[in-house]
Design a protein around this nucleic acid. Sequence first.
RNA 1: AGGACCAUAGCUCAGUUGGUUAGAGCGCCACGUUGACAUCGUGGAGGUCGGCGGUUCAAAUCCGCCUGGUCCUACCA
Length: 948
Amino acid sequence: MDKTYQPEQIESRWYQRWEADGRFAPSGEGAPYSIMIPPPNVTGSLHMGHAFQDTIMDTLTRWRRMQGHNTLWQVGTDHAGIATQMLVERKVAAEEGKSRHDLGRETFIDKVWEWKQESGDHITRQLRRMGASVDWSRERFTMDDGFYQAVQEVFVRLYEDDLIYRGKRLVNWDPTLHTAISDLEVENRDQQGSFWHFRYPLADGVTTDDGKDYLVVATTRPETLLGDTGVAVNPEDPRYAALIGKFITLPLVGRRIPIVADEHADMEKGSGCVKITPAHDFNDYEVGRRQNLPLINVFTQDAAILSEAEAFDIQGRPLPDIDPTLPQAYAGLERFEARQSIIADMEAAGLLEQVEAVNNTLPFGDRSGDIIEPLLTDQWFVAVESLAKPAIEAVEKGDIQFVPKNYENMYFAWMRDLQDWCISRQLWWGHRIPAWYDADGNVYVARSEQEARERHGLAADLELNQDEDVLDTWFSSGLWTFGTLGWPQQTEELKTFHPSSVLVTGFDIIFFWVARMIMLTLKFTGEVPFKQVYVHGLVRDGQGQKMSKSKGNVLDPIDLIDGIELDTLLEKRTGNMMQPQKAKAIAKATRSEFPEGIEPHGTDALRFTFLSQATTGRDIKFDMGRLDGYRNFCNKLWNASRYVLMNAEGEDTGLGDAAVELSLADRWILSRLQQTATQVTRAMEEFRLDHASQALYEFVWNEYCDWYLELSKPVLWDDNAGLDAKRGTRQTLVRVLESILRLAHPMMPYISEEIWQRVAPLAGTHQGDEDSIMAKPWPVADEALLDEDAVRNIEWLKGVIIAVRNIRAEMNIAPGKPLEVLLTKGGSADRERLEANRLFLAKLAKLESLDWLEDPQQAPLSATQLVGEMEVLVPMADLIDKETELARLDKEIGKQDKLIGGIEKKLSNDGFVAKAPAAVVEKERGKLADLQASRRLLMEQRDKIAAL
RNA sequence: AGGACCAUAGCUCAGUUGGUUAGAGCGCCACGUUGACAUCGUGGAGGUCGGCGGUUCAAAUCCGCCUGGUCCUACCA
């Protein structure tokens, strides 16, 4: 074995072996355990968030597999409609200078499939690097044939149950992408804006109570004036009571629009009058519905002004009686140009009363970044009310549990106020909506055109055209848990692995995905999609900033694994930027954070870092320092193993029938191992992977390496130690390490396998060349190996050794200088322990001699430490500096006095003694006694030194 | 506007049902190449647990208010 751990040499080798040996497929035996991977978008590569999430899932999967479950980790990717289409459009534009319209639908879709192939391969390579033990043989894609079938089936059935409908509705329209998007895809951002107050002249010579011949309305979107079909006042508002039912002459347009009474108008705000534009505002749409106002659309799909408006009633039926004329001055103007023109024209007409600066929130498309426009369009919707009810109940009843639980509130709040889901998208990449139209506009929904004809008895020569739109990506990914298992066929896999055990996901897609999966899965399988939802946070950079290309703070998990030169990293972060002006600052920050680039750390160290930071439901600040630390941990484990192998390979490790004698240290470490196994297992069960990793880390480093390996040396290297004892120690060294590797394997698959292959034969758990740690059982604590007596003994031993080390440090004694040490004042147990541990003590504390002093009065002048009742003395008359030592002792005594004072105060409090549990009071008394004893010792010591 | 979460050592974070001398890693200081490991060892310094008030014999932990931060939902005619 190399002297330092070299991850790159082992990782890919083992992954290939596991995969070739079919170790990731379900075993077919044991209780089922399944996780469905949240399918990554085929838009590019996996980022830190994926790496984090995949580490969690792989750790859970490997752990359950070792526990003997029939384990499936289902893998696949998502077609990600908008995101992927945009990406390929950009690519085509850059490479060929063409738009998707130049290519045409079919050619463009072919290009996307090409991209999907390329990108999908990249993603699967990355998953392999992370060590993800997914079942590649079952890999799926949300647009593969099986999903196509599932999607058609779901759509048709929902339609037949009247849960899908089509209609002309006001939707969030993205003028750049030319598609509707759902409420969730809209991001609200604060902006500095203006509030224009306009005068709307009253028609027919009517005046207000105070004699004005106009009403004042205010808007942040003056261009919508063209589509106004009313002005609302509050029914309770005395100022305008007389005007209800009267009319306004809409400026610039000349349309007569009514003044209506509607509670939407807030008497407190502005003038109390509101312009109503039902075709361009969601609130106004509702007012229009209540007040039976017409809807007048004035925008094209680009959000430019139409030359002639389109009027509809609330059902979306055309209203031919309404005059569609619009001022030609605005025709074709883009919305913000139109806004400026309209403001100018209103001002010129003397109708602009004031402009007020305001902060307001604008809706932006999360993909395009364009300002979203409410627009009347024909769209398909899912009626969610009846689907939401059982989905809420499933969580209320506990059939689905969120971890951590507080996300359930977020889920409930959203589900209880759910709006119908707009599922149609005016895109090309996606599942085409299975609806066909004849020339008269009749719609036929079916699984195929052929089925549409058969079911509706349509003539073979009747021309049918399929709906041009595709479905929202989340509609298909909503079927993920059962679609991947073969639904609508009732497959064996579906029976076995559904519902899945746990969904591991970020809080940011609870609404997008989790909620919809629950609704759709309950509807079509009658089962919940998963029993638990483990919600993790976002991976942020070391400063807590979101990682993004534009901030230049992105870390690529592969670079942390393999390392990267500074120059390459700079190129990656500053190359090909949307905002090249930031490149300089980013380069500077990068140079200062990574002056030497990034060293290789290996997959296992990266995974361990993620796990150690995996506090549920909280964002994590990725800490490079911890990554280094856990790389060192891998090295520690590596070198400990080297030590074990050096001492055990070719030696008798107790596999035969020969007698084996276990030392105190052997029994101690075996006992601690059992406790660690219990601890790690419990933490895993509770999804506290940070605790699991920490328990393992502490056991390996602080107990196995720091103490047990040291304690094994005297036995293995001392010629006086018996053969049975040596055999026992070798056996324990090897067995404990073998168990450690199994405990570590779900978290650190590569290094654990690599070492295990060498160690397991010595522990007798390796069965032939084909064997793998993946096939070995998860360690279960053996109660019979718990040994309280050994634990107490080793604690005592450690106490003595630490006492001597303390004295060395305090007295400035060279670490290597052999010392003569006396023990005194203790009880018979201490004397027995001295004899039992003499060998260990002498070696670990580097002692010249170790003796029991019968009469404490005869103690020479010594540096002293207390272990329980017993005193550890290092005689050193000539080494003590009187003044320094007195000062040190006084400081120490002061500390003790403070603690003693605190406890005495507590114990003199009648309330405490009366009300606190007896055990607590006893504990305090015990502490007090200990402190007083040690104080007494310090005082004696002080007196001796003062007397010099 | 409503809600959630967070605030513990210079940094990143643990801290069950209230009882600990409040912990870990990194960083810092001192010493140290003894036959696994300098990606190491030994010892150490460093915290009025964001602030105020309350409940309690006892609060980092429970409750209220405040401050600061992150985020979600809604609204802004």
